[in-house]
Design a protein around this nucleic acid. Structure first.
Lengths: 205, 205
DNA sequence: TGTACATCAGTGAACGCGCGTTCACTGATGTAC
DNA sequence: TGTACATCAGTGAACGCGCGTTCACTGATGTAC
C-alpha cells in the first residue's frame, strides 16, 4: 500500500533507492564492471531513472561516497572520545577499522579503483578532493580533541597524523584483499598503536 | 642498420619493447583506459604483436609488474644495509619511497586500479598473490637482516612489519595523488620512523 | 655454398559486444480558476 | 470540490562507439639435404 507521495518525496525516495542499490552493485562488481542496468534493476527502476537523478555514472558514485563518509564521521565521533586511556582510543579505532573492513572487504578497493579514474578528469578530481578534505577535517577535529584531552601533541600536523593512519588502514586492507590471512587484527592494532604513539612528542620537550 | 637477429632474439626484443611501452601507456592512461592499440603503436608494432607474445591485456600487465618488482628489490638491497644507524636505514627507505613516488606518482594508483580487477578472476588473483608474496619475502629478508645486525626484534612478525610499511607508503601516495600538497617528505619520514621504531621490542624484554 | 620447403613472428582488417548515454513518450502529480 | 491544462519523474528502446580478441595472411628466418 505505497501511500501517495508528493513529487519531491518520490524523487528523494528514488534517489535514495538508487544510491543504496548503487552501493551494493558497485561493491559486488567494482566501479568499472558495474552496469547502470544492474543498479537500476536492483533498485527497482530503469536506467532512465538514474539519468533523471544523476548526470552520469561518475556522479552516482560520488553520491555513494558522500553517504559513506557521512556515516563514518558520525561513527567515529561516537566512540573515539569515550575511552579512558589514550591508547584505548587508538585500539578502539584500530578494531573499528579492521572490523568494518572485514564486514565489507571490497569497500577499500572500490574507492581506490575510482581514484585513478577520477584523477583523469579535472572536474571529478576536484569534487573528490573536496569531499576527501571535508572528511579528513572532520576526523582531524576528533583526533585533535582527543589529543588535547590527554595533553598530547604530535611531531607532525594532526591532519598528517590522520592521513597516515588512514593510509595505513587502507594499505593493510588491500594486502588482505589479495591474501586475507596476511595481517591479523592484533597485528594491525599493534601497527596503529606503534604509529600513533611513535608520533607523539616526548612529554615536556 | 638493424642487424639481423635470430627468431628468438627478435621475439625477446619485441617482448621487451612491448612491456616497456605498456608500462608507459598504462601509467599515462591507467589500466582500463589504456588501449592495446596505443601500446602497440608506442612500441612500434601492431596489436597482433601483443597477442603473439601475451595471452591477454591482463597478462601483459602482469609482465609490467614483474619487471617493476624485480627492479625495486634490487634497489632496496643496494642501499638499505649500507647505513650506519638503524634509523638512518628507515629514513633512507622513507626518502626512496617518497622520491620514487614523486618521480612516478601514477604508479601506485595504477597498481591499485588493477587489484580489484584481478580480485574478480581466480587465475589472475592467484598470479598476483604469488608475485606479491615473492616481493614481500624478498623485502622481508632484507629487513630481517637489517634488524639482526642492529640486534632489534619487532613486536609483530617481520613480514607484517614490511606489509605495514608498504601499506603506509601506498596510502600516503594515494593521498598525494588527490592532493599533491598534502603529506611532505619530512612528514612521511617521521611517519615511517615512528611506525618502525614503535614496533621495535623494548631492549632486553 | 646453394636450393626447396617449413616455420612462425608480426600484420592488418574485421568482428562482436557490452554498456554509457540520449530521447520521444507516458501517466501520475501539481496548479489555476 | 471539480475541471482543464501544465509539468515532470521515470520508461523503454535505440544509438554509437571504443576496444579486446580473433584470424587468414606474409615475408623473413630456420632446416634438411
Amino acid at each position: 500500500m505505497a501511500q501517495r507521495l508528493t513529487r519531491i518525496e518520490r524523487r528523494e525516495r528514488t534517489r535514495e533507492d538508487l544510491v543504496e542499490a548503487a552501493r551494493e552493485v558497485f561493491l559486488r562488481r567494482g566501479f568499472h564492471a558495474a552496469s547502470l542496468d544492474e543498479i537500476a534493476e536492483e533498485a527497482g527502476y530503469t536506467k532512465g531513472a538514474v539519468y533523471s537523478n544523476f548526470r552520469s555514472k561518475d556522479e552516482l558514485f560520488v553520491a555513494v561516497l558522500d553517504a559513506h563518509f557521512a556515516e563514518r564521521v558520525s561513527a567515529y565521533s561516537e566512540f573515539v572520545l569515550d575511552q579512558e586511556q589514550l591508547e584505548d582510543s587508538y585500539r578502539a579505532v584500530a578494531r573499528f577499522m579492521y572490523t568494518t573492513d572485514e564486514a565489507e572487504p571490497r569497500w577499500t578497493p572500490l574507492v581506490l579503483e575510482f581514484w585513478p579514474h577520477a584523477a583523469r578528469s579535472r572536474e571529478l578530481r576536484l569534487a573528490i578532493a573536496d569531499q576527501r578534505r571535508w572528511f579528513i577535517e572532520a576526523i582531524t577535529a576528533i583526533v585533535a580533541e582527543l589529543a588535547a584531552r590527554h595533553g598530547v601533541t604530535y611531531r607532525i600536523p594532526v591532519e598528517d597524523v590522520v592521513r597516515g593512519a588512514g593510509a595505513l588502514a587502507r594499505g593493510v586492507a588491500l594486502e588482505r584483499l589479495l591474501d586475507p590471512t596476511s595481517t591479523s587484527s592484533e597485528a594491525f592494532e599493534e601497527m596503529l598503536v606503534a604509529y600513533m604513539t611513535g608520533l607523539a612528542r616526548e612529554e615536556g620537550s
